[in-house]
Simulated assay, not measured.
Amino acid sequence: MLDTHPSIFVPHISEDISILDLNIIAKQLNTLKPHKLINSSWANFKTNTESSFNIAHLQDTLLLKFQVSETYFKSHARKTNDDVHLDNCVECFISFLDDENYYNLEFNCLGSLKVGYGEGRFNRKLLPEQILKSIKTLTKLQNDKTLNQFNWEILILVPIDVFVFSNLKTFRGLSAKANFYKCGDDLPQPDYLSWTFIDTLEPDFHQPKFFGDIFFS
């Protein structure tokens, strides 16, 4: 099934984040309809991996929760802005306010992260570690040996100030372009799943022309 240009209306969660813990936020996101990463865009990388994500916002915080079921585990606790895409990894690429540049937010299943900004794969500026320290994650891992499955999920809280090049004040009423991914370049069986279909010859997530529409309620 190909979904070339879908859209998402991102709900607002009204509770004050200061009085909630991450487990409560994760449970709230679980009540939302998940969006599946149904597109395996490259014939040479077909996979049994399944992944979905939930998305919401708190006016000043982007909330993401990915769930993944796959066969292999191969990840490392990495330094900030290291190559997390080599591991069991999920990603969100997003641009705001008709900006031709976009942010890439990448997380492995251990919570290591990489965040950059730019107009394409080869012209990116990595964000300073001091800014990225404000991003919070909560990960849960489960190895089901009976079914030969590695199941994991990650909750991600991204304060609006992380998007330093966009001068954003609130997510409320904002529109954006985005795509969401699951990958694992160094897994025994590499996989490349995306929310929208990507029409390129080789795996390449840095394709903003295939981003879908995001509308923040």
Rank of each mutant, 00 (worst) to 15 (best):
K27C: 03
I8W: 10
I154C: 09
K182D: 09
V10E: 11
S112I: 03
D99I: 09
G184V: 00
E100G: 14
K177W: 04
L187E: 00
L174A: 06
I135A: 03
I135V: 05
Q149I: 09
S75R: 05
K125L: 07
F215I: 13
V10S: 08
F150C: 04
L110Y: 07
S40Y: 08
I17V: 11
R78A: 00
L64S: 04
L141W: 07
S95V: 08
D60H: 14
N81I: 01
K79W: 05
E15R: 10
P6F: 04
L138G: 08
I13A: 04
L63I: 15
L147V: 07
P208S: 06
A26T: 08
T80M: 09
D161P: 01
L58C: 14
R78W: 00
F210M: 15
L86C: 03
N88S: 00
W42A: 08
T200P: 03
K65N: 05
D161W: 01
K46C: 00
F107C: 00
E70V: 01
L2V: 15
I154E: 11
G116K: 02
T80D: 09
K209H: 11
Q130G: 06
E70L: 01
N81L: 02
E129P: 04
S112E: 03
W152G: 11
F53N: 05
L29D: 10
Y102R: 11
L187T: 00
L132S: 07
E70S: 06
N151Q: 13
C92D: 07
L64E: 10
I8A: 02
V115E: 10
N148W: 06
S41W: 02
L63E: 08
E100T: 14
